[in-house]
Nucleic acid binder design. Structure first.
Lengths: 211, 211
DNA sequence: TTTGCCCTGTTAATTAAATAACAAATTATG
DNA sequence: CATAATTTGTTATTTAATTAACAGGGCAAA
């Protein structure tokens, strides 16, 4: 598929494609071969129109009577969002949060592999946590360069987030997912996604209050 | 402040108000009394215009020369997003993820208090985890009604999310934050927010791949 | 006093995203 | 064969959110 077209796919569509794929994988495992847009929609909180629009953007055509070929669609989504040889990921902060993420990914066949964890606590450094080797934060630069890790997840406490992000950028990382409550700065060429659980919970609380 | 006006505040603004407040609390602790919109903006990934627009929506007026009064602004944001008597929150699934959230909230003076955790694992039920009593999932309905809990966070594995959400709704919960990878269904009068770490990571990976 | 600067507050314009609308295609059915 | 029922693919419309533009106020310095 044309690279220029891929770049024009909206952020939200990219994220939905990832969701579609997971739902499709489940269907595929159940032996289903084809699926309609409204079936995909029903598996998520999405409308059938939205699904068809997203699939139009990636240039996939379904069968008018049978719907979409699940196997083909999974493959196409993979071609768009995955890297051919996979990508390595590192986690910064192996507390409960870091371990939760590691655990979630371990054993999952995926193009994304968590290959290293970093922490400062002596009872974690040097050990394997959920099958992932845990190194001291001081070793981060070395390991990142050595392994060619380009993606990192920040799960350190808020007061360490800024320095952690700085170190990550300096070691050449190109994508950062920041789960700490503190916003971090990155250069323009580094993709940053921040998610703060507290503000999200406060939002929920607000709308509960308002009925 | 007028209730009708509050309801018209965009979702994104609500979330930003929560962010502003946290940043403002830090400034306040440092002894600062006033702050300019561009200063607030610099603490987050937000523009000064956005800040002023958000504050306009909540009807707060700053001083032309000194900027915004930090104390007053913190109070006003509190009036909008907090409930006067606070709100209780329960966590469903006390694995690493559930514990991470509990730990994060414990000790934080806030109008949101996590008062109960639910799990099925015998080595968690009956114990206190980070100061939060952990009950068996079967007790959920009872505890929720007894304590009047209206907000719940789902951190159970994906295959249990749907039934968990169902139980939460049946027990009268009005707000659900679903961190499991499986979308759940709720009635219209229940506010639902879903966040999936895997799709977010895949999005980051996608944009890293595309430089 | 007057000029210039740097704020706020608000309206206008732009962009991004979701929704609606509908033509075209295909199969089943009478 | 014609009609009805579905479903896809695409364009048009609407809505939501962000960004730009700018009027107006107040202080400082000349």
């Amino acid at each position: 598929m044309d690279q220029d077209l891929i770049k024009k796919i909206p952020h939200k569509t990219i994220q939905r494609l990832s969701q579609y794929r997971r739902a499709l994988l489940l269907c595929f495992e159940q032996g289903k071969t084809h699926i309609f847009s409204h079936e995909i929609a029903n598996l998520q909180h999405i409308t059938a129109v939205q699904v068809r629009r997203d699939l139009m953007l990636i240039g996939y055509s379904g069968n008018l009577r049978k719907g979409y070929n699940i196997k083909d669609l999974i493959e196409l989504i993979g071609k768009i969002i995955d890297s051919p040889n996979g990508q390595k990921v590192a986690i910064f902060g192996m507390g409960n949060f870091g371990r939760a993420i590691s655990k979630y990914f371990s054993g999952r066949r995926s193009k994304l592999t968590i290959v290293a964890g970093f922490d400062v606590s002596p009872d974690k450094v040097g050990k394997e946590i959920v099958g992932i080797p845990c190194y001291h934060m001081d070793k981060a630069r070395e390991i990142i360069l050595q392994e060619g890790i380009k993606i990192g997840i920040i799960t350190v406490p808020g007061d360490q987030a800024v320095e952690t992000a700085k170190a990550m950028v300096e070691a050449g990382m190109k994508g950062i997912l920041n789960y700490s409550p503190t916003p971090v700065e990155v250069p323009e060429n580094v993709f940053l996604e921040e998610y703060d659980m507290v503000t999200s919970l406060e939002k929920v609380a607000f709308y509960v209050k308002e009925h």
